[in-house]
Design a protein around this nucleic acid. Structure first.
Lengths: 147, 147
DNA sequence: CAGGATCCAATACGATACTG
DNA sequence: CAGTATCGTATTGGATCCTG
């Protein structure tokens, strides 16, 4: 994963940080408002040692940050940084793909992430650094099948 | 990953299939036009045994399919199924996030995936099963911080 | 409650050798 | 070339016990 061609590929570099089986589930829960160690552990059903490792890795990567606990306890909350919030599109795409191809027609699925009033937030669409919507500027596109 | 809450979550179910360190890199290469075993192996720098396992898993999952080789050799090509092509948005989102947060301002990055004439294809935007753009219907949204 | 330390099982992975 | 088989190592991940 750290060899020359992949080292300069944004996809590979991203997967190096969040391409394991737990990180994006933690991020998903964070988008859902989960903030406390025990809540992550209960929601994900993973061992505390692994959760500790993964949370630390996400802190190191700048995806999560620690804050003083909102409830005033002596512990801290894990919250998404702006970089972590930038994963919103990715999590939505993952969910969309799962819904489209991995569920039967009317199979029930969890609807964890909605506003309290049932109103969905408009998801962030991917944009380039100039702020233009990705659709107009994406460089990661399919080559013609000729090759 | 197979416990009750996560079993009905589309995000978790998707990650169960393509949430490892290699699958999405294989898919990325497939979008780039790579079709042959050796080409994947050279491009990714992974061992042949692992590549074999991952390709088989992606075949089983319905992400890839085998076709008679385009060059007439006795081997076969690995090509993206419609389900695999549905990962396009995901790969683009991954790339976009990597570019936005994991690269320095003018750091060079690989631009593997462009059309031969330099023109980008319009990426597929995530849609619901009725064909509406995801922005209007996403249920995977941030909860208010109150919780 | 929020972890760290330790131990152990299962798996991921690479290197090498083998096959048609 | 396109794999499969075998081996050894590294990493993953859970279980258990420990601490402030």
């Amino acid at each position: 994963m750290h060899d020359d061609p992949n080292a300069t590929c944004p996809v590979a570099r991203a997967l190096d940080l969040i391409g394991d089986r737990w990180s994006l589930l933690i991020v998903r829960d964070a988008f859902d408002g989960v903030r406390r160690f025990s809540d992550f552990q209960r929601s994900l059903g993973m061992s505390r040692s692994m959760l500790s490792q993964r949370l630390q890795a996400l802190l190191d990567a700048g995806v999560l940050a620690q804050q003083p606990a909102a409830d005033g306890s002596r512990y801290h909350d894990y919250v998404l940084t702006p970089q972590g919030q930038g994963l919103f599109t990715l999590v939505v795409a993952l969910r969309q793909w799962g819904e489209d191809f991995l569920f039967a027609e009317h199979e029930p699925r969890s609807q964890l992430l909605t506003l309290a009033d049932g109103q969905p937030l408009a998801p962030l669409l991917p944009r380039d650094r100039e702020g233009r919507v990705l659709a107009a500027t994406a460089t990661h596109v399919v080559k013609p099948a000729t090759r």
